[in-house]
């Protein structure tokens, strides 16, 4: 016992080393581990807010109905009921936020409708598709109302040739 106490300076050195080591560790940890790390898990809690902070680009169909009346009403009762406004009109959060900032262009029906309705073997067979060669000629919106497409295409179309041939 006496022998041990005689060399106790070793013990104090060791203890001192531990204390210094711990302080270095604690200091480094405070510097390198960012704020909020570990609150929910092995990540920065603030990252959740960062991810939430992105601005909206699509307003959502509910927002359009806040100002526009006829189109949402017509759409709801039509075969396009499930098609959102921005599926055809494009992202319009800026317009919905402040209509003065951006007046949306009217979609070009010449290209728009066929994005969805162009016949393709990979499309589900229940989905209404057309091949423009077999369909009455003209811009789609001349006969179909985009917001209410199935309701009696306006002018009586010329009989479709291919169908007449059958």
């Amino acid at each position: 016992m006496r022998h041990l106490m005689k060399n106790k300076v070793h013990l104090f050195r060791m203890a001192g080393l531990f204390v210094v080591g711990f302080l270095v560790f604690a200091g480094a940890r405070a510097v390198f581990v960012p704020e909020g790390f570990g609150v929910y898990g092995h990540y920065r809690a603030g990252a959740l807010e960062d991810n939430r902070a992105f601005p909206l680009v699509h307003a959502g169909r509910a927002a359009c109905a806040g100002c526009h009346g006829d189109e949402p009403e017509a759409l709801k009762a039509s075969r396009h009921a499930k098609v959102g406004c921005e599926a055809c009109h494009g992202a319009l959060a800026v317009h919905a936020d402040d209509p003065a900032k951006l007046t949306p262009k009217k979609p070009d029906a010449k290209t728009l409708c066929l994005v969805c309705h162009m016949a393709n073997v990979a499309k589900p067979s229940g989905f209404k598709q057309i091949s423009p060669e077999d369909h009455p000629e003209g811009v789609c919106t001349e006969c179909h109302d985009p917001h209410s497409p199935a309701d009696a295409p306006k002018p009586a179309p010329a009989p479709v040739q291919k169908e007449a041939a059958k």
């Binding site: 959740l48 991810n51 939430r52 902070a53 992105f54 601005p55 909206l56 680009v57 699509h58 959502g60 169909r61 959102g84 921005e86 599926a87 992202a91």
Partner: peptide, 15 residues
Amino acid sequence: YHRITKGLTTACCET
């Protein structure tokens, strides 16, 4: 995440 946490649907589901 910026949409679903605000009660909106995702951009892909919206369109």
